[in-house]
Amino acid sequence: MKNSWREALIGLCLAALPVAAMFVLVVLPAFEGLRFSLGYVPGDNPAYSTGSHLVTSSTPTLEVYRTLLSSPFVQADLRLTLTVTLFTVLLILLVGYSLALLVRFGPGRLGAAVRSLYLIPMFVPVVIAAYAFITLYGSRGWLDALLHHVGIGYRSPIYGIPGIVMGLVWSHLPFATLLLGSGLDALPEEQVEAARDSGAGFLSILWRIILPLNLTPTMIVAAFSGISVLGSYTVPALLGPNAPQMVGVAMEQYFGAYRQPQGAVALAMITFALAAAIGALYVWGISRTRRHG
């Protein structure tokens, strides 16, 4: 009894350090950010107090959020962010599943090739990848030159929404495929065999056995890539249109280019709320699966 108490205490002490570090480095600044976005301008923090167009108030006010959300410019940014997040997650799932299925069920050589290729994006820094996309798919890039030779016209998608989605899908694929693949590996072979023996086609096996049994990894991939895409910065900063922008880019612009830290912090809070909503969906989904599973 005494021993288990001591072990618990040691465990708590060990856990306390990272928790304390997180509290100081993440929770406190986030709290100060929240207060700032509600109109409390901290006089002793020049990074905040030297901003332009500050809303200063001694009682909490939603003025900053009102101004932001009523701007058609910010509305367009949020619409773009949600659209890109939705399409990117769907594409990640679609492509990730296809690759994972190829690895698990594909013919020997193809499966092996995919298995070694799909991890590549993980080892290429996103910035390099984004520039590679520009060189390859950009206007007067390689693809353009190639198509020009065979007489096909080309309009580069790279500085439009498709450019952002392409870049984000590419960079998120390894993680998604890895996770979906490990879920597929855990599927009981017998069930698939039994279904095959009783004459079920691949699609019905996929729909009735594989997808339902692999629901948890699927939800993990959807939630984690959703949150990561929502707050992404590098890919949308380098690819995509001048405007509208993903919120990650807009946030940085408010902070740096427009010198409006209050707007940046408020955008961060909005992004946090959206990410929390995805997280809540995920928790709800997981708890449902557990109950039914």
Partner: peptide, 10 residues
């Protein structure tokens, strides 16, 4: 910078 993004690019 902000006006440009709002009125020109956006």
């Amino acid at each position: 910078n902000k006006l440009w993004y709002e009125k020109i690019a956006g």
